[in-house]
Simulated scan of single mutants.
Amino acid sequence: LGLGGPFLWVAGRAIDVMLAIGKFVSDLPGAVQTVASAPDVALPIAFLGVLFLCLWQGKGRWLGLPFAAAVLIWPRAPVPDVWIGDGGTTAAYVQDQDAIILRPGVRTFASDVWSRRRGLRSLPRETIGWTCDRFSCVPDGDRSPIALWWGRRAPTQDQLSTLCSRAQIVSVRAIITTLPSSCSGRLVLDGTDHAQGGAVELWKTETGWRAIWTSDVRGTRPWSKASPGSMNQTQ
């Protein structure tokens, strides 16, 4: 009979108002705060703390409160200085609390997941201060610690020399057989490293760079390549 029409119209307008309020609040400064992920061990500890709070009787139950908040209060690991995506096709470096993406729009899911896990805001690199073409992206000056070559073909010796002269870390998607003298003292990762290790996080240390590869974290599985034993080393 259509008697419910007016009520449905009112319900629809109420939903529109709720959506408008939600959009207004989400657009406010500081409405969204990215927090770095806690270590894996914090989650089961928090679960046991919540369980203790819910099941225990009396005031002693509040002893479980610090454990229930483990995910929030657990100290976070230091943020890496550089991240290189699986296969060496994209990369990012950390500047303040921002993850500067070298190739915006390429494998954005991986870069977004990594930046959120580390509590960083993902931003595209600036167009000024970079020399980029179809196969590579090289910083001008000391703007970035990494230069990226994502072309399937290996760079020439002159191109590789340019990459090494502009950055402390050089990531090349292809396999490199020889390095020019300008790459001495540089950390050069090529297709062999990426094929064995996957994505990698790099921390600057006093003696070089410390690396943690995806293969170091996931371990050896039947559907993944074996983890190289020497990749989680300071270089």
Rank of each mutant, 00 (worst) to 15 (best):
V172T: 10
L63S: 09
S230H: 13
H194K: 01
I84H: 04
S26L: 12
D140P: 01
D142V: 02
T214F: 11
P104T: 06
A20Q: 10
G129V: 03
F7Q: 12
Q33Y: 12
P44C: 15
C54F: 09
L1I: 02
A68F: 13
L1H: 08
W209V: 09
A174F: 09
V41Q: 11
V113W: 08
L51D: 03
F135H: 12
R61V: 06
D142A: 15
R221N: 06
C132F: 01
T220A: 12
L202G: 07
V17A: 05
G85E: 03
A38Q: 15
V50R: 05
A77E: 05
A167I: 08
A14T: 12
W83I: 10
G58I: 13
W203Y: 11
R173Y: 04
D27R: 08
T234K: 04
R134A: 11
Q235I: 07
R218E: 05
Q233G: 02
S26I: 00
F135E: 03
Q233E: 07
T156A: 12
Q233F: 01
W74S: 10
Q233V: 07
A70S: 15
I73A: 13
G88F: 14
A31I: 10
G185T: 11
F47V: 15
A147E: 12
A70K: 03
P180M: 13
G141M: 07
D190N: 15
A174Y: 03
P180D: 10
M18S: 12
A42P: 02
T131N: 13
D158I: 10
L160Y: 08
L3G: 03
L120A: 06
R153Y: 05
S171G: 15
I21W: 09
L163G: 07
I100C: 02
